[in-house]
């Protein structure tokens, strides 16, 4: 079975992926204007500054939206069906696409539901997945 395409890890994004390996979710912060964002880039889109640093997220966020796949677009995704891809906004501001580990095939997901970081191993990588804080399971 072929593997999913891997993220393009380069000089700009390496701190993010290395952070996950060490159990930390990092985001970029502008020292000039305070803007926070992901994914990594070399300039601040708010004030155009290059004075950037990496900070550690507390790992808390809320669900903005989500979709549930019932069809696998890649062979490696067949075993996950049905699976969610969820848009989470971190408390610090950046938004990430992720999976919710206790989504029950998407059935447990709600807009604005609170989620916490739940880093998981996927092959030889660490991914920033999340867990619903108040799982509405009966």
């Amino acid at each position: 079975m072929s593997e999913l395409p891997r993220p393009q890890i380069d000089e700009i994004s390496r701190p993010y992926w290395e952070g996950l390996e060490q159990g930390r979710l990092l985001y970029q912060h502008c020292r000039s204007c305070g803007h926070n964002w992901l994914p990594a880039r070399q300039t601040c889109s708010a004030c155009l500054s290059t004075q950037l640093e990496w900070l550690q997220s507390r790992g808390q966020g809320r669900i903005v939206s989500w979709v549930v796949y019932h069809v696998a677009y890649h062979d490696a995704l067949k075993d996950r069906l049905p699976y969610d891809v969820t848009l989470v906004e971190l408390a610090e501001g950046p938004r990430v696409l992720t999976n919710i580990v206790n989504s029950r095939g998407g059935k447990a997901l709600r807009i604005d539901a609170r989620v916490d970081l739940a880093i998981e191993r996927e092959g030889d990588m660490s991914l920033a997945r999340f867990r619903l804080v108040e799982d509405a399971a009966p």
């Binding site: 993220p7 979709v67 995704l77 696409l97 990588m125």
Partner: peptide, 19 residues
């Protein structure tokens, strides 16, 4: 880079908006 989370297809982006 989000393909590793299963993020595939043009339709899915519209799915987020629809939802």
């Amino acid at each position: 880079d989000e393909a590793i989370y299963g993020w595939y297809s043009v339709a899915a982006g519209y799915g987020l908006i629809h939802q």
